[in-house]
Design a protein around this nucleic acid. Structure first.
Length: 268
DNA sequence: ATGGTCGACCTTCGA
């Protein structure tokens, strides 16, 4: 099992869209699926309904109504209780696991970063402050992890850092997800120990999105997308990277999420 | 310039 494919998807309700996971598996053939916005408390996690998918190893952290993250895996894994309770909120926005691969353990982090509300102003909008505080905390925490290696960080990070990660850099400078403060915060976090595994394959001058708003009648025609979903790896894994895929067609799945799956293949 | 659409859940909130 030298090739490992890791997919990340904001599923926007696991119970509502559980049937779409078959399509994801068929299209991407992932070994590991990281989900965000599962919106299901742990005691209601649909383990039985997931069984036919044949991802026997699962870890999850959910709550009622909001947030929630899960990892479905064909590779044995165990929860890695290592990270703090970000911003002391008790939110279910992060789960870490250790994957047991034939060539040694891999550390995997699955994040759902706060969306941050509508107004990009700390005083006026506490959600925006929470988002900036969250990514500052995660940056400091990873920066303190000296010797971090063989690690993968994925998730809905709710920030599009590059000019071509949004449909119009100029028009989104004041829109939460692409403000200079968020971009600086996310970039500093990544540079605390990771490289962008998707942009490793796609030049920065090329438009690349993973999310299109529900509020566009014809999302494909208007194509006002943003790249909010990311896969980062520690630099030691850079030579291991083999390919990336963003499953744009998933945006047209029946009753689909507003996010599409992102996947990276690596030889680990 | 504005409003546009979802999901969860109890009527409005979060995205």
């Amino acid at each position: 099992m030298p090739l490992l494919r890791v997919a990340t998807w904001n599923i926007n309700s696991l119970r509502l869209r559980i049937g779409l996971l078959d399509r994801l598996v068929e299209a991407l053939r992932p070994d590991v699926i990281c989900l965000q916005e599962t919106k299901v408390p742990d005691e209601l996690f649909p383990a039985e309904a997931l069984r036919p998918l044949e991802f026997p190893h699962t870890v999850f952290r959910g709550m009622k109504g909001y947030n929630g993250v899960a990892i479905l895996s064909r590779v044995p894994l165990a929860v890695h209780e290592i990270a703090p309770d970000w911003c002391g909120k008790g939110d279910c926005r992060h789960i870490a696991a250790t994957l047991r691969t034939p060539r040694g353990p891999l550390e995997l982090h699955n994040f759902y970063v706060p969306a941050g509300g509508d107004v990009p102003d700390r005083a006026e909008n506490p959600k925006y402050g929470h988002k900036l505080d969250f990514i500052a905390e995660t940056r400091l925490w990873f920066a303190a992890r000296t010797g971090l290696a063989r690690s993968i960080l994925v998730g809905d990070l709710n920030i599009a850092p590059l000019e071509n990660d949004v449909w119009s850099h100029r028009q989104l400078l004041d829109v939460v997800s692409h403000t200079p403060a968020e971009v600086a915060g996310l970039t500093a976090w990544m540079q605390a120990g990771f490289i962008d595994a998707v942009r490793h394959f796609v030049p920065a001058d090329q438009k690349l999105y993973s999310w299109w708003s529900y509020r566009n009648r014809d999302w494909r025609q208007s194509d006002r997308g943003r790249r909010l979903d990311h896969i980062w790896v520690t630099p030691d894994l850079k030579p291991a990277l083999k390919s990336q895929a963003i499953l744009k067609d998933a945006r047209d799945w029946p009753q689909g999420s507003d996010h599409v799956p992102v996947c990276v293949e690596m030889r680990v």
